[in-house]
Computed example of a mutant assay.
Amino acid sequence: MSLPMSAVMLGVQDLARARTFYTEGLGFTVAQDVPGFVALSQGAGAPQLALYEWEAAAQDAGVASAGSGFRGVSFHLNPAAREEVDETMRSAVAAGGSVVRAAAGADWGGYYGYCSDPDGHLWKITTYGSA
């Protein structure tokens, strides 16, 4: 049995703020926008990113909504060049995100940095080439 991943859902505190971050900061497009929920797309073949109000997401899963800090997960975007890493980081910050780790060269030859969305979800922006 094959179970391809179709979506990643993030609980967010402010749906409008998160929508701005993901569309203006990281370049996602809106696939669906209804009260309390936004589905975002990166194009054909990519899983959707679903934004759901934090309290409603916790209630839907039947868990407490309290908790902060590292959540044991990060999401990764892989632009083709170092300049695109820097550009993506700048766009993310301009759209309400925060730099967690400034972009820099890595011992393994790549180049990466971390930013977070307004709710603290971590995004690693990395290129594997040395260009």
Score class of each variant (00 low, 15 high):
residue 38 V to L: 07
residue 107 D to N: 02
residue 125 I to W: 06
residue 68 S to I: 04
residue 48 Q to N: 07
residue 124 K to G: 00
residue 20 T to G: 04
residue 116 S to Q: 09
residue 7 A to D: 02
residue 110 G to Y: 09
residue 55 E to W: 08
residue 44 A to F: 00
residue 27 G to M: 14
residue 95 A to R: 08
residue 57 A to G: 01
residue 101 R to A: 08
residue 40 L to P: 00
residue 78 N to Y: 01
residue 60 D to P: 00
residue 90 R to F: 06
residue 38 V to Y: 01
residue 47 P to Q: 07
residue 105 G to S: 15
residue 34 V to S: 12
residue 91 S to T: 03
residue 47 P to G: 06
residue 51 L to V: 07
residue 76 H to E: 12
residue 76 H to W: 03
residue 66 A to S: 10
residue 4 P to L: 11
residue 126 T to L: 13
residue 71 R to G: 08
residue 110 G to E: 11
residue 43 G to V: 04
residue 89 M to P: 00
residue 117 D to N: 09
residue 68 S to T: 08
residue 107 D to A: 08
residue 111 Y to Q: 11
residue 71 R to D: 07
residue 48 Q to Y: 10
residue 120 G to Q: 11
residue 49 L to R: 05
residue 30 V to S: 04
residue 49 L to W: 01
residue 94 A to L: 15
residue 42 Q to G: 05
residue 84 E to K: 02
residue 57 A to S: 04
residue 5 M to K: 07
residue 16 A to V: 09
residue 97 G to M: 15
residue 17 R to G: 13
residue 80 A to H: 03
residue 98 S to E: 10
residue 120 G to L: 14
residue 72 G to K: 11
residue 93 V to H: 01
residue 98 S to W: 01
residue 37 F to H: 14
residue 28 F to Q: 06
residue 3 L to F: 03
residue 85 V to L: 13
residue 64 A to H: 08
residue 91 S to F: 02
residue 102 A to M: 01
residue 3 L to K: 10
residue 81 A to R: 11
residue 95 A to P: 03
residue 98 S to R: 14
residue 100 V to C: 04
residue 72 G to T: 03
residue 20 T to E: 12
residue 26 L to P: 01
residue 63 V to M: 09
residue 27 G to D: 09
residue 30 V to Q: 06
residue 121 H to V: 13
residue 39 A to M: 09
residue 68 S to P: 00
residue 100 V to G: 02
residue 80 A to V: 01
residue 18 A to Y: 04
residue 119 D to E: 10
residue 117 D to A: 12
residue 85 V to Y: 06
residue 130 S to M: 14
residue 7 A to T: 03
residue 82 R to V: 06
residue 7 A to V: 04
residue 2 S to Q: 06
residue 31 A to N: 07
residue 48 Q to H: 11
residue 126 T to A: 13
residue 129 G to C: 12
residue 40 L to S: 01
residue 8 V to H: 01
residue 38 V to S: 02
residue 111 Y to R: 14
residue 47 P to E: 04
residue 26 L to Q: 05
residue 83 E to C: 02
residue 115 C to E: 03
residue 110 G to H: 10
residue 53 E to D: 13
residue 108 W to P: 00
residue 53 E to G: 05
residue 111 Y to C: 12
residue 65 S to P: 02
residue 12 V to R: 14
residue 64 A to C: 04
residue 5 M to N: 04
residue 126 T to W: 05
residue 5 M to F: 05
residue 52 Y to V: 10
residue 58 A to K: 11
residue 72 G to M: 14
residue 64 A to I: 05
residue 36 G to Q: 11
residue 128 Y to G: 15
residue 58 A to H: 10
residue 40 L to E: 01
residue 78 N to S: 12
residue 124 K to W: 02
residue 91 S to K: 14
residue 19 R to D: 14
residue 116 S to G: 05
residue 117 D to R: 13
residue 77 L to M: 13
residue 42 Q to E: 06
residue 119 D to L: 11
residue 130 S to P: 00
residue 83 E to N: 03
residue 53 E to Y: 05
residue 20 T to S: 12
residue 27 G to V: 10
residue 80 A to I: 00
residue 128 Y to W: 09
residue 5 M to R: 08
residue 51 L to C: 05
residue 120 G to C: 13
residue 53 E to F: 07
residue 101 R to G: 01
residue 116 S to I: 09
residue 3 L to P: 00
residue 59 Q to C: 07
residue 91 S to R: 14
residue 8 V to N: 06
residue 30 V to G: 03
residue 10 L to E: 02
residue 9 M to S: 14
residue 74 S to T: 13
residue 67 G to P: 01
residue 72 G to F: 11
residue 20 T to N: 07
residue 36 G to H: 05
residue 64 A to P: 04
residue 20 T to A: 15
